[in-house]
Design a protein around this nucleic acid. Sequence first.
DNA 1: AATCTGAACAACCGCAAAGAC
DNA 2: TGTCTTTGCGGTTGTTCAGAT
Length: 510
Amino acid sequence: MSQMTNEVDNNVHYDDQTGSQLNDDGNGVGVVLKKGPWTAAEDALLVNYVQKHGEGNWNVVQNYSGLSRCGKSCRLRWANHLRPNLKKGAFTAEEERMIAELHAKMGNKWARMAAHLPGRTDNEIKNYWNTRMKRRRRAGLPLYPPEVLLQAFQERKHGQGTGEISDGDGGHRDFLKKNNYEIHDAIFDSLKENQGILPFLPDLPAISANSFLPNGLGSPPYCNLLPSTLPNHDHLQESTMSFIGSSELNSNRFYPFDHIKDNTSDKISESFGLYSPLDRGVSHGSICYSHSLSNGNSSTSKPTSEAVKSELPSLQIPETEFGSWGTSPPPPLNESLDVFIHSPQPPNALDSGSSSPLNSGLLDALLYQANTLGCSKNNSSDKSSNSSIATPGDRAECSALNMYETEWEDYADPLSPFGATSILNEHPVVSTNGNSWDEWELFQTFSDNNERLQSIDQVWTPKSENQSMSLLNFTLPDVLITSDWHELYSDHDSTNQAIMTEASDDISGQ
DNA sequence: AATCTGAACAACCGCAAAGAC
DNA sequence: TGTCTTTGCGGTTGTTCAGAT
């Protein structure tokens, strides 16, 4: 041991190129502890220590092993790099899907997520997610694939977690209850408070956050189900807000986070993906997740093989800059375009200065979809002429949308584990949870729709329009405003009915 | 070839919960 | 019961590397 100590001392001093030494935080008074990257020798010492003494008692590691590291650092090193059965390398497709799924359910509970991913560490998952999130937000893409959202929704709806994921973890429930519902109470309060100024919103008398959110929509992640930004977000913001058309909007009354005036509001909004990466505080992000389901990409989206992945860093493989969920197909942009073109433009609704904290993705989803559905119903027959009557301003919006279309086309990545088609056409995702049949029925419905789509190009054909719309309606926030939406949905296929029925039942049954 | 940029990864820090005393 | 210590977690920062310009 003394020999080892000497070796360590040597290594510590010779290898400490960072020169970053300082006292430990309270432990080992006066002992200069090394910081910075670990050396192989240090690793060996730590491994040796753990083999002899087991894990734990990290603060005494330096006493027994000679390591000049604080206990924290030792524990971290062991947990993240040295302990056996650690899986190294890029995340597999299945793991990536799992992470998205877990994050949709748990939020930033990295340790819990890691518990579901054998061999992976919380730090690894956290890094992966943060990197991915940053990239997707920059690209203006949603964080979650729709199928993940649906699955989470379904699981919460049925009041049971999967054995694998929710596994009766009280902590998780506490987390949801403590952190998420409160936020969404705010959202709901604002919705209710402002429903009078929103002509398309039905009354929300019996819908409270607490009655609805237990199904999972209360999770912060669901606030991210929309892209929090768009390349040309100003246009989208205008479009989104155009049909709101209330001066109250500009008085910042409408937005659910307004009551959070302190410094935490930024953090909250940020963590919920409510900010634009381009412009913190510009409302936008109205493209609904459901758009993605209209893609005709019928790739089975087999998980990328490890062999392939190992050659490239995760996230650099199948996905393009715009689509780590890859197969998430492009939105029905013709319809979206129509909506934007035909959206009324109250003068004061275009105040792009109404910035943060106006980026309630959830809210935008409601608003945008309301408008989308309402307008598209009326305009579905004369799409071709729409662009010709667009105003110059509208053209700008068209441009923005075209940009977005391009992104969504990039979304159609057959290699992604999260592609809609992969989820829809393959059982594993569905069958991994306890609600396999309920969910499978839903997924099958989508799948049937999807199978009729022959290519991305055909998404915009009249034939696929209903499909697009029906899938569009799948977006979760729709259920927030069920009654009137049923009418809008009435001439769509049974998918909507099924989902809306479920959602309605869900809400009324709470 | 040099520089810039973003992704990936490693590590640190502060805080809080849990456990020991 | 209160205090101290240990452990774990999540956020953040720093470093390295590869690709783009």
